[in-house]
Simulated scan of single mutants.
Amino acid sequence: MGVLTVFFLALLWDLLLGEPPAKLHPVVWFGKMAGFLDKRWKRKSPLRDFLAGTLVALIVVIFALALSLLPSYLPFPLNYALAVYLLKSSFAIRSLYEHVARTVTRKVEEKRKAVSMIVSRDTRALDEAHLNSASIESLAENLNDSVIAPLFYFLLFGLPGALIYRAVNTLDAMLGYRNERHEYFGKFSARLDDILNFIPARLTVLLYLPFGGRKVLRYYRLARFKLNSDKPIAAMSAVLGVWLEKPGIYRFPGRTPENDDIGRALRVYWFIVAEWVIIISLLFATEVFPCLSP
C-alpha cells in the first residue's frame, strides 16, 4: 500500500459516504478552536489584536500539523486507516455537489433557503437570477477551496499539506472578515489563505480550458476584483455563458443565469473533478512529486 492507495480510498469514502459526523470531523475541530479563541480575546488595539489573531492561527495550524503526523506513529493497518480518514476530511466533493444541487428548484423561497446555506451574503433581497448566480458562484469558488486546493497540497506535501491548507481555509472562513471585530484579529488568517490559494485558484482556471478555451482566458483577464476567489468564478461564467455577479464587488458578462444553469454548472463540476483526479493519479503513479508517505 502507498500514497496512491490512500488517495483512492479517501476518494471512495467521499463519493460513497460523504462527510464524517460533525463531532469527529477535523475541519469542524479547526472551526471550533478558532471560534473558541476568538470569543475569549477581548479586543484591545490593532497591533495587539493582530498579534493575538496570528497566535490563534498558528495554534490551529500546529494542531492540524500534529493531526497529520499521527498516522506515522501508528502500526499497520491503523496508520493507513487514519491517513485515509484525515485525507478524506480535507476535501468535500460529494458534500459540495449535494449542497448546490438543493438549489436546483423553481420554487423561489425554497431556492432562497438552500442558497442561504452555502453563501455568506444576505439572500432575502435577491431575485431569482441573483440566487441562481450565487449558487453557481459558490460552486465555482468552493471547487477550488474544497477540492482542487487541498488535493494540490496533498500532492506536494502529503497529508500535512492537505490538513494545514484546510485549517488555514477554515480560519479565513471564521475570522477573515473586514469588520470591526475581525479587521485586525483575522488579518493574518486572511492573508495566509490568500497566499495558499494563489496557485490553486489559477490552476482551477486552467482545468476549465478544455470546456471553454480562449473564452476562459478572456474572462480570467476580467477577474481583477479579488486576488483569488473571483478567478474560478470567472472561468465558470465563461463556460456557462451566463453573468455571475456579487453586487457591488464583481460582475462577469453573459446572459441571465437560469435554474437549469445550476444543473449545467454541476455537470461541469463533475468533469473538472474527474480531470483533476486523473491528473493527480498520473502524477502519483509516475512519482513526479515527492510526497510524504502516510
Rank of each mutant, 00 (worst) to 15 (best):
G31P: 11
R191M: 12
R106M: 12
I262N: 08
G2I: 00
L67C: 13
E245S: 13
L86Q: 09
S229M: 02
A101Q: 10
L69Q: 10
L65N: 08
V115H: 08
G254H: 03
E110G: 03
F7A: 02
E258H: 09
L51M: 15
I118L: 14
S45G: 11
P210H: 00
L283H: 00
A34G: 07
A129Q: 10
F211R: 03
A10P: 01
L4T: 01
R178N: 15
I148A: 04
L67V: 15
G158F: 01
V216D: 03
V119R: 00
L159T: 02
L192E: 11
V277R: 01
A129L: 04
A162D: 04
R221L: 01
T170F: 02
P247G: 08
A134I: 05
A162R: 03
L175D: 05
L206G: 11
Y269V: 05
F271P: 03
Y269E: 05
E287T: 06
P150I: 12
S95F: 13
L203D: 00
Y250V: 05
D127L: 03
F271G: 06
F271C: 10
L4I: 01
L175N: 06
A285S: 10
E110K: 08
A201E: 05
F76L: 12
L207C: 00
Y250H: 12
N142L: 07
G212T: 00
L78A: 15
N169E: 06
F63A: 10
V273H: 05
L131T: 01
A234H: 01
A64C: 12
R106I: 13
K32N: 12
P71Q: 13
P160L: 03
A201N: 07
P257Y: 05
W243M: 05
A64T: 09
S72A: 15
I249P: 04
R124F: 11
L159C: 04
E245L: 09
F252Q: 06
E258I: 06
G248P: 10
V168M: 02
T204M: 03
P150R: 04
N144R: 00
T286P: 05
F63I: 09
R106V: 12
R94T: 06
P26F: 15
V104W: 06
K39G: 04
Y97D: 04
L206A: 15
F198R: 03
L82Q: 12
G176Q: 08
R214V: 04
R181W: 05
I262V: 15
V6I: 02
R112N: 04
T105A: 09
D38I: 07
S189Q: 06
T286V: 12
P160M: 08
L47I: 14
I148K: 01
E258D: 14
H130C: 04
K215S: 07
A223T: 00
A10F: 00
L227V: 10
P20S: 12
N228M: 07
R40P: 11
D122M: 07
F50D: 09
A234W: 00
E110T: 07
E98F: 10
Y97L: 06
V56T: 14
L207A: 05
T170D: 10
F50V: 09
F7Y: 03
N79F: 10
V56L: 15
F30Q: 08
I279L: 11
F152I: 01
M117G: 06
A238E: 03
Y165W: 09
L37F: 14
L209F: 05
P71L: 15
A34V: 09
T105D: 09
